[in-house]
Deep mutational scan, measured.
Amino acid sequence: TSSHKLRLYERDDYRGLMSELTDDCACVPELFRLPEIYSLHVLEGCWVLYEMPNYRGRQYLLRPGDYRRYHDWGGADAKVGSLRRVTDL
């Protein structure tokens, strides 16, 4: 099985509160109590970021690497509604 891990930060450049995720999350704002995510670091696996909860809205593919600001993943703003692991490519 492949492993997945990413870290979410409330501010750009990996500042502020950090939360780690290793499984799908249908509602990021509810789980982490963060209305917006300004940076993230994908440590393992690929993920799909959705701008709205319950895997809706615009989708962004996140490969392992650094995303210091939301425009690094192509986002128009810092809204992160849900995240899902990519298990098949």
Rank of each mutant, 00 (worst) to 15 (best):
E51L: 01
Y55G: 01
Y60A: 05
S3A: 09
V48W: 13
R7S: 02
G57T: 02
R84P: 05
C25P: 00
F32E: 14
H41W: 07
H71R: 11
L8A: 10
L62M: 03
L17R: 12
V48G: 03
R63L: 09
L31Y: 15
D13S: 11
M18D: 02
S3Y: 11
W47Y: 00
A26M: 09
Q59V: 02
Q59K: 12
Y38M: 15
P64F: 03
L89E: 14
D24Q: 01
G81A: 04
Y14P: 05
E36I: 09
G65M: 00
P53V: 06
V42N: 00
E44V: 07
S2D: 11
K79N: 09
S19V: 14
G75K: 15
P35G: 12
Y55K: 01
G75S: 09
Y60R: 04
L83S: 04
G74I: 06
S39D: 01
A78P: 13
A26G: 07
L21K: 06
V42E: 05
W47A: 01
A26H: 09
I37D: 15
W47R: 04
L49T: 04
L43Y: 09
R15C: 11
E10R: 08
P64M: 01
G57C: 01
G75E: 01
D12V: 12
Y70C: 10
K79C: 08
S82W: 01
L83V: 09
L8T: 01
E10C: 08
S2Q: 08
D23Q: 07
D77T: 13
R56E: 15
P64R: 02
S19N: 15
D12A: 11
D13E: 11
P64T: 03
L6G: 01
Y50P: 07
L83D: 03
H41T: 06
N54D: 11
L62G: 07
D77L: 08
L49G: 04
L40R: 00
R63P: 08
E20H: 01
C25R: 01
M18L: 11
K79F: 15
V86S: 11
V80N: 09
T22E: 14
R69H: 14
L21Q: 00
L8H: 03
R68W: 07
V86N: 04
G57K: 06
W73C: 05
L31H: 11
L89H: 15
D88K: 15
S82G: 02
M52D: 09
A76Y: 12
P64Q: 09
L62Q: 03
L21E: 00
R33C: 13
G57R: 02
V28R: 01
R7Y: 07
L21A: 01
P29C: 08
D66T: 14
L49S: 01
L83T: 07
D23A: 11
L31M: 11
R68I: 04
E36P: 05
E36W: 08
R85I: 07
S19W: 10
Y67H: 07
E44R: 06
R68Y: 10
C27K: 12
L8E: 01
Y14G: 08
Y9Q: 00
H4A: 02
G65F: 00
T87I: 06
D23L: 08
H4G: 02
D72H: 13
E44A: 13
Y38T: 10
S39W: 06
E51N: 00
R69W: 14
P64K: 09
L21S: 02
E30M: 06
T87F: 11
I37N: 13
L49R: 02
D66R: 12
L34H: 15
P64S: 04
E30N: 10
R33T: 14
R56Q: 13
E44D: 06
D12S: 13
A78T: 06
K79T: 10
E20D: 05
S19Y: 10
D13G: 09
V42G: 03
T1K: 11
Y9V: 03
Y55F: 14
